[in-house]
């Protein structure tokens, strides 16, 4: 990929999770790493995927406080595929029980980051996922 091609990332809180400010913080870090972050706030899978289409996103980042991640996360992957956007990688972050991580990856989530993941890991993870494309 050419250097000046800015990575476009969609960032959303899944469903009705409202208390976690982490996603906004991560968004700011990604911006400072030179990415274009399209911040959605709270949205459901249909709206997230619409945004990915219209914004021509490279990556989708979802945050969750748990409860809904096993259904809503994979739903995003499925809808992206339906729209012909299987190249768009989906990342998840937040409070997710470790035993669910393999399940999510099985269902097409590219990477899952816990609340303590260092920012560099997330930034590099996103960069590398785009280069693979």
């Amino acid at each position: 990929m050419v250097m000046d091609r800015k990575i476009r990332v969609i960032m959303a809180k899944l469903g009705l999770d409202i208390h976690w400010r982490g996603v906004y913080l991560v968004s700011q870090f990604l911006r400072d790493a030179g990415m274009e972050v399209i911040y959605l706030g709270n949205k459901f899978p249909e709206q997230i995927v619409e945004a990915a289409v219209e914004e021509d996103a490279d990556v989708v980042g979802l945050s969750t406080l748990g409860g809904n991640h096993l259904t809503l996360g994979p739903k995003v992957v499925e809808l992206l595929k339906e729209k012909g956007l299987e190249n768009v990688r989906v990342f998840m972050g937040g409070v997710i029980p470790p035993k669910h991580i393999p399940v999510l990856k099985e269902k097409g989530i590219y990477e899952v980051y816990g609340p303590d993941t260092p920012m560099e890991v997330i930034i590099n993870g996103i960069r590398e996922s785009v280069q693979v494309n």
């Binding site: 911006r31 400072d32 790493a33 274009e36 972050v37 911040y39 709206q47 945004a51």
Partner: peptide, 20 residues
Amino acid sequence: CSPFTGGALLGDRVRMNIKH
């Protein structure tokens, strides 16, 4: 956009609640 990194945090979509 951020004048230093060229990155941007684009937030206008937060208010879009229209059902596409």
